[in-house]
Simulated scan of single mutants.
Amino acid sequence: MSLVTGSTGGGTAVSKSRRADSAKLPAAGPPRRDRRRSLGRRNLHGWLFSTPFLVLFGVFMLFPIVATLWMSFTEFGVRNVRQPLSARFVGLDNYAKLFGDDTFRTALFNTAYFVIVGVPLTIALGLLVALLLNNGIDRARTFFRVGFYAPVVTSIVAVAVVWRFVLDPSDGLVAGLAAEAGTKAPDLLGSETWAMPSLILLAVWRNLGTVMVLFIAGLQAIPAEVREAARLDGAGGWQELRRITLPLLRPTMLYATVITTIGYLNVFEEPFVMTQGGPSDATLTVSLDMYRQGFNFFHMGYASAMAYVLFVVITGITALQLRLLKDNTR
């Protein structure tokens, strides 16, 4: 009897202990179905809030990109008055015609020349100005920063007016300096040799502010402790620049190089406003040639093929530069 009672009492004690332990455990979360429903509701809200952007992106970005790709395989353009707009599938004929087009090869060469000369010049001057404004100039630093960045946000029409006055061989600034020196000013924009360097100088002046801002941000991100440690170890100004500043600025430098290269490969405004591609196609770029073929001669399919060739070139060069960035910042 006592044995039975003891066993019963022990079972009661164990059951009470289990109930106490279960009371201490946290309550179970909502069922999996409810969690899925809550997650789906949040996703639906996110898609609803994103719908205005997705619609605008699809209409004004995605659709033109796909339509341009399709047009590059067609003879799309204006044929005659009775049939103002027509498209005929021609396969790869537009691309084959491109590489046999002397004008396109000239535009490709001019664009490469613009990039090869303009990008290093822009990067070097932007770095120099950033170093001076970050360390060398204490007074009126904000004034100089605004002054260097102002051309970036200035209309190309206003820029063209200023630079036409500067380069005018009869009444411009260059003419005045030449007269002071007792010589005649050259017609820089009318010269096949000097027209492109003049446009490169204009582009460097316009884009210097963007590169300067990037480098200033990179310089300010370098820890002051690193510089102080280098100075305590006896590093001079040149050694600090070469061993500390430039290596730590490498990601910023390559990012600035990437965006500047992409912008110069797409250069259009400067030759369009200043020289219209002349003289004798000396300043004709790929973007300007594309504009001419599409909107002057209405060869939309041919211009679309140009656009995709330029797209492939930009993608390849950008991928190469990003690979360099990845390899050099491990």
Rank of each mutant, 00 (worst) to 15 (best):
T51W: 13
R330A: 14
A124S: 14
F89D: 07
E270P: 02
A181Y: 04
T183D: 00
T111F: 11
F63N: 04
T8P: 00
T74W: 07
T210I: 12
G278M: 01
R82Q: 14
T12M: 09
P120G: 08
W70G: 06
V211D: 14
I317N: 09
G58T: 15
L121R: 00
D102Y: 09
K184H: 11
S191G: 07
V55M: 10
E269F: 02
L189I: 08
L201H: 08
N43D: 11
I314L: 06
T315Q: 05
Y302V: 05
A179S: 14
P26M: 02
M71Y: 07
L214C: 02
Y264T: 07
D168Y: 04
F215L: 10
T193F: 09
D233G: 05
T5A: 11
A160Y: 08
T260I: 09
R36T: 12
D327E: 14
R105Y: 04
V286R: 02
D327K: 13
V286A: 00
M290V: 01
A175V: 02
V211F: 11
R35I: 13
R227W: 08
V66E: 07
V258N: 04
Y255T: 15
T318Q: 06
L284H: 03
L284G: 00
K24W: 06
R82S: 13
V204M: 01
T12N: 03
V129T: 12
Q239Y: 03
V119K: 01
E269Q: 10
T260S: 15
L232R: 03
A282C: 04
R292M: 00
E240T: 15
V162Q: 01
T68R: 05
D101Y: 06
F57E: 07
T260A: 13
A203F: 06
P247K: 01
A179K: 12
M71L: 09
A112L: 15
F165S: 06
N80Q: 06
D21F: 06
T103A: 11
N43H: 11
G46P: 00
T122S: 13
V174S: 06
T8I: 11
A23C: 01
M196P: 08
T261H: 05
P151C: 11
G126K: 03
V14K: 02
A282H: 03
R164N: 15
G209S: 03
